[in-house]
Structures are given as structure tokens and as C-alpha cells.
Amino acid sequence: MKAYAALIGLDLRLALRQRSVLFYNYLFPLIFFAVFAEVTHGDPSVEMAQIVVMVTILGVLNNGLVGAGMRAVQEREANILRRYKVTPITAAPLLVASTIVGWILFLPLVIFLFGLAHYRYGMPWPANLGEIFFFITLGIVAFRAIGMILAAVANSTQESQIMVQLIYLPMLLLSGATLPVAMFPHWLQVVGQFLPATHLVSGMQGMMLRQETLSMQKEAIAALAMTTAVGLFVSYKLFRWEKEEKIRASAKLWIGAVLLPFVALGAWRALFPGR
């Protein structure tokens, strides 16, 4: 446990010393929120909670895919992980520390966002705030797990950037986080059902806009929890300490394994839309 605690402390300090982390984790989402909130403030057709959901999902995607995914590849390329390889630890403390630190770094943004939405723009406090925070937590750890799989299978920073963008953009556009799903043709709505972010968005929207409870998000919770478990397991198994350790091209199929719960969920929703 000593190693876990020490790595969590170190990761947190290192993250807070990086200007880019502070910018992408806090400043960028807040600017984004402020712009949207100011533009739509007073517009009865837009609920402030909707903007909070959008910015939260944007933050989760950034934190998970960029924060966990690309950073690990950069550390491996810079020969930083190699130093850990000669010590008596496995990859587990590094992966767990990265996941927990991602969550710790994200919480202040969520608190600030909700506070700003409430005090500045008059958003009523959701009745199930604790449950919403739990759901966001699950989203963060699931997307960190997806990010860590990307780190495990990408052979270079450049490759990881491409992979992150290939996953990030469809999720941002098709999940309902930034554009209303209803405006998409039906087939695109079906495609969106297969994306992890869609379930995070629909779950959060349900809890924020329709006062749904956590127990009503069982499918999304199961899919996110399973993604976390499979993601951590696979990234542990495929963890690479050195840039010279190349991975088989077939290992990239593990990304599919992590997304499998969402494929199942998407198929379920596509086949039985009313349930």
C-alpha cells in the first residue's frame, strides 16, 4: 500500500505542476461553460443543467482519453517508466494511481461547475447530487481505463494522438453531449448507442434534467463498471514499460474488448428501443 499512496501523492503533485493539466482540466472547460452559459442565459429553451452536463462530459473525455492515455505514452517514450521497471512493483500501482489522481483532479471542476451554475446562473441544486457525483466518478474511472488501454496499444505519442481523436470526436459529436441526438437521422442515433459517452450523457441528463435516480441508470452503470474492470485488467496485461517493447497489431483488438459492454448495450437499445 505504501507504493500506491506514494504514487498517488507524486502523480497529483506532478499534475498540478503542469500548466497544460491545469489548462485542459480546469480553465478550458470553465471558459467553455462560461461562454455557453452567458450566451444561453435567459433563453427559456435551454436549461443550465444541460450545459453543465455538456461541459462535464467534455471534461470526462479530456481527463480520461488525453490525461490517462497520452500521458502514459509520453512517459514511456521519455524512458520514465523504464526506471520503475527495475523496482519490485508491478504495473498495478501505476495504473491505480493514475485512475485515482484523474478522479481527484476532476472533482474540483465538477464542484466549481455546479456552484457556478447554481449561484451565477440560478440552476436549482439537483435533488440527487450525491448520486450524480457517484455517476460522474464511475464515468471518470471508466474513461481513464479506456485511456490506459490506448496507452498500452499505441506505439508512439503520434499514434496515441490519432487514436484519441478517432475515439474522442465521435463521442463528443454523437453522444448527445454537444448536439441534440434528436437532430440526427435514425441510423446515426443507433450508431451513437454504441458509444460509451452516450450512456454517460443520457444517464447524467436523466439525473440532472428529469430528476431520475441512480437506480434508473442500471444499464449505464453496469456498462461503465464493466469497462472499468476490463479496461484496468487489459491495460495491466498489456502494460509496456519501454518504447522498445513493441506490441502485436492484434493486441489493438483489446480496445474492442473494453468497448464490448457498450456494443452489447447499444445492440440491446437498438433492438428494443422502448425498454
Partner: peptide, 9 residues
């Protein structure tokens, strides 16, 4: 190690 590195910060 011959070739190793640490975080700059």
C-alpha cells in the same frame, strides 16, 4: 540504468 529519465518536475 544506462538510459533512463524522470519527470522534469
Amino acid at each position: 540504468l544506462q538510459a533512463t529519465n524522470m519527470s522534469e518536475k
